[in-house]
């Protein structure tokens, strides 16, 4: 029953929650324009609603903000924060690019890993960072995610992972490609140990991440409207010379074709994930 209740959409706006109240707007309060409904939304209101517009559009969210949203307060302990990309192939421009991205994003790499509790239940958590080279997977991302699954096997913990990625990081060439095999083998190790892995696909989840750990979870969830696919839409259009169907590669399309279990809007995710952990024997700490 509990599951049924929380599956009902809870729209703070419709229920007269804090975000539906007319907002007292300071003149000049920064606003963000919604790409879906085209309305300008005051940032404060957007933040109060976990970066979801009243029309349901989910804005991209930084990894640390997502962790704050999902993990029990103060429960997140970061792991492997010191693992970060080098420039193994001496790829032109990569070193500068990564320096720039590091200072702009405040992150060292495109994934944040650690342990946390959700509704009091301990789990391993990884959250990819769209603001770091669009969550591209190089050796460091592969190493961090692999290490996290191995840690989860050692301590018998479930893994929850939020994916966002343009795919493998080209600047690390074959080494990036091999991270797909490496992370997949670690997911398998974790799965063979009888442990739960839940992936939440967020916008966009594509390429080598879709073709590896994003699609390998026991339970695969997606955020509304997220692009989820293997090949880029433009590449498909160029290859096939066909126009793409409406909603192509959106999470609703992927659900319809049977590749995700459910679409869960951001405001329901924490309760949903906590419930799933509970139903898989999550241990209270």
């Amino acid at each position: 029953m509990a599951l049924m209740n929380f599956l009902k959409p809870k729209n703070k706006l419709e229920e007269g929650g804090r975000t539906s109240a007319p907002v007292q707007r300071d003149a000049g309060e920064p606003e963000k324009s919604c790409p879906n409904c085209r309305k300008d939304i005051p940032l404060s209101r957007l933040w109060a609603n976990d970066l979801v517009c009243s029309c349901g559009y989910h804005f991209r969210m930084k990894a640390r903000n997502r962790i704050r949203m999902i993990a029990d307060k103060g429960s997140f302990h970061e792991l492997y924060s010191g693992i970060k990309a080098d420039n193994p192939l001496n790829f032109p421009g990569y070193k500068d690019k990564i320096e720039t991205v590091r200072s702009a994003s405040g992150e060292q790499e495109a994934v944040v890993c650690g342990t946390a509790t959700l509704g009091g239940q301990k789990c391993c958590l990884f959250v990819m960072e769209s603001y770091f080279m669009m969550g591209s997977m190089g050796s460091a991302v592969g190493e961090k995610i692999t290490s996290l699954f191995e840690y989860a096997v050692q301590y018998r913990l479930p893994v929850i992972g939020f994916t966002v990625s343009g795919g493998a990081r080209m600047q690390e060439g074959l080494l990036s490609l091999m991270q797909m095999a490496k992370t997949s083998a670690a997911v398998r190790l974790h799965s063979d140990a009888g442990l739960l892995y839940i992936a939440v696909l967020t916008d966009p989840t594509t390429g080598g991440v879709t073709a590896s750990f994003a699609m390998e979870a026991d339970i695969i969830l997606a955020e509304p409207g997220a692009t989820v696919g293997f090949a880029g839409a433009r590449v498909i259009e160029q290859t096939t010379k066909k126009s793409l169907p409406d909603g192509f590669q959106k999470s609703e399309f992927v659900l319809e074709h049977g590749f995700v279990d459910s679409i869960v809007s951001r405001r329901d995710q924490k309760r949903y994930l906590a419930e799933l952990l509970k139903m898989h024997g999550g241990r209270a700490v």
């Binding site: 797909m180 095999a181 997949s184 083998a185 390429g207 879709t210 073709a211 590896s212 750990f213 994003a214 699609m215 390998e216 696919g229 293997f230 090949a231 880029g232 590449v235 498909i236 290859t239 096939t240 066909k242 793409l244 169907p245 192509f248 590669q249 074709h257 049977g258 590749f259």
Partner: peptide, 18 residues
């Protein structure tokens, strides 16, 4: 890279092989 390939889960098929 095709529409049908995406509809039938190209990424999932590769991931499962891995």
């Amino acid at each position: 890279c095709g529409i049908g390939a995406e509809e039938r889960g190209q990424g999932q098929a590769i991931a499962e092989n891995l």
